[in-house]
Design a protein around this nucleic acid. Structure first.
Lengths: 193, 193, 193, 193
DNA sequence: TATGAATGAGTATTCATTCAT
DNA sequence: AATGAATGAATACTCATTCAT
């Protein structure tokens, strides 16, 4: 039972994975619908049973990956812990995710600046970060974190990771435990009061 | 009269500008050679008188824009000034450039992650930032700046600007003088000892 | 019904025919993929469902035509017949083919000298002529045919037909039964002991 | 004095040579006007001072090469010599030319079948072969040579050389003195009474 | 005479998408 | 639900030719 539904889900998953892989090896222009279909062992026409068009496919992929990222980010997070400790935990969770799932991290950073991702999708992707925003708010109330806009806090604590990841992917930089500690230090210093 | 040479330079400039504009409105996939030619009021074949191919065109544009960015960055910079003051000056120069030339800033941030830009070009583009790297080194020797890799310093002081700019371009964030001061504060705090 | 398969075969055939016709009227440079598609009443993209690229298309066409040529050449050929009679039969078969299928003959002679045809394809095309080579060998063993390389035998018995065909196509020469007999006489005299 | 005229002739010669070389390395489609101009160290526009268009250029080249071929063919030819001896001399002259000037020979054989060469040009190119036709006529009157059309005689004595040359160029056949003697033997046997 | 710059039309090939089955 | 076949429009790039100088 449910075999059909499962098969359907499998196919959708295969398509998303194929898209992710292709985009990572050569950018979005390398990920043609034909190639995606081939890599997912599916007919090109089948893609359109699951997704409206290419834009829809990429946007859904974006949401999916962003979702798995934030899921990992808040793993083990407990609201009752002190602000810095919580932030530290989330930050290292995020770093761990990016280091472990380089393709996903690379994909997300590719999406950061391209117009193919709808504004709506972007907002949707941010929603799951709410706990982090709440944490920052608490930190600000406690006088631990600067009273800056969450955009600023994000820009100076989370966003830099992407740069370091990209540099590492290009082979011009090596991330290790020491670097990670330093990065966190910089992140925290930038927003702590 | 130099009329011919001038005309030639004008055309090259028109092509670079057209490319910049098209890439900004819709990403690189929207910037086809045909559209670029049309926007520059030139035949498609003419592009190839000035550039080897699309990759060459985009890379040259990248270098050109990066060049104008760094030129602005070090405007009025004098090595003899104290580290923090110098850094502040450079930082605000960069911010001013990004605010004034949003298309250029947006283009550069799009290029950060696409494979179309050669690694060599990227390195070439970084060369002009050498004075900043030197400044950081001096700051580290003076015990003012953390002994981190320049990659880290860049990731936490310069790179975040791109995020804020993009957010503003998308209309989800508003940069003003106060925000700018806060951003600099965060940048400096992240790397100062 | 096999309707689908048949339709597929028909389309491939239409494409090959269109290519043949276009190459014959104006050489290979006149046979653009767009024209081929148009003449075959098919979209340019459809060509690539059946052939890898232009080179593949022309090479496959070459093999196909060469195949139909050699098939005709050995029609009614029986190994047990005497050498001269067999050779005569094959020779006139070939001549008949070239006279009946002038476009094919003309196409083949155009292909003799162009680099678009792969060496491998050329060899492949020769394979079906093996019975003729075997016949010559027998003739040489029987002391009837000169002990020359098959290349020489081919050059002086088969190859000249192309010249006569081309001359006739250009209207500068008329082939009739008498000429045909003379041509065979010349061919045989050139290789007989 | 006459420096200008000489320069002019040099340029025309350079253009013809460039065309010959390019056509030989990759066929006519590889010989674009731009490449020809570059190889001849001349502006593309300059070509049109000497030739009407590409067709004209190739046709004039054809005539030029054919001319040098026939010039060589009748080198040392004296009408008073016996028919067979004269034919032998001309035949070996032609073979020597083709072996020594492979590019020219290859070019001529490429031209044999392509529509780019005008019929008029072809006829013009044949004119210089008149002494050979006269020789054949004499041979026929003397009862030494078969009473066949000159087309046939040409097809079976001269044309086969092209096949052997092409085979050698492709590396599938080796021409040496013995082969040459055999080839002449075949040629003569095919037309002698 | 000679040119470098310019071009519109063309090149082979690929695209995202749809349709008949 | 799923597909292989099909496609018009687009892709980057090249062509033979011309024009202003």
């Amino acid at each position: 039972m449910m075999a059909k539904l499962q098969k359907s889900i499998d196919k959708q998953r295969a398509l998303l994975e194929a898209t992710l892989n292709l985009i990572n090896n050569g950018g979005i222009q390398e990920a043609s619908m034909a190639k995606i279909a081939k890599l997912a062992r599916v007919s090109p026409a089948t893609i359109y049973l699951y997704f409206e068009n290419k834009r829809d496919l990429v946007n859904k992929l974006y949401l999916e990956v962003k979702g798995s990222f934030t899921e990992k980010a808040f793993e083990g997070y407990e609201v009752k812990n002190p602000v810095k400790k919580s932030f530290e935990q989330i930050w290292f969770n995020m770093a761990a995710f990016k280091l472990r799932h380089k393709e996903k991290a690379s994909f997300l950073s590719q999406c950061d600046n391209i117009p193919l991702i709808d504004e709506q999708t972007r907002q949707e992707g941010l929603k799951h970060l709410q706990p982090l925003f709440d944490l920052w708010l608490r930190g600000q109330k406690e006088g631990i974190i600067k009273s800056f806009s969450p955009h600023l806090l994000y820009a100076y604590t989370i966003y830099p990771m992407a740069f370091l990841m990209n540099a590492q992917c290009r082979g011009t930089f090596q991330i290790n435990k020491k670097v990670l500690q330093e990065a966190f230090q910089a992140a925290w210093d930038s927003i702590k009061v």
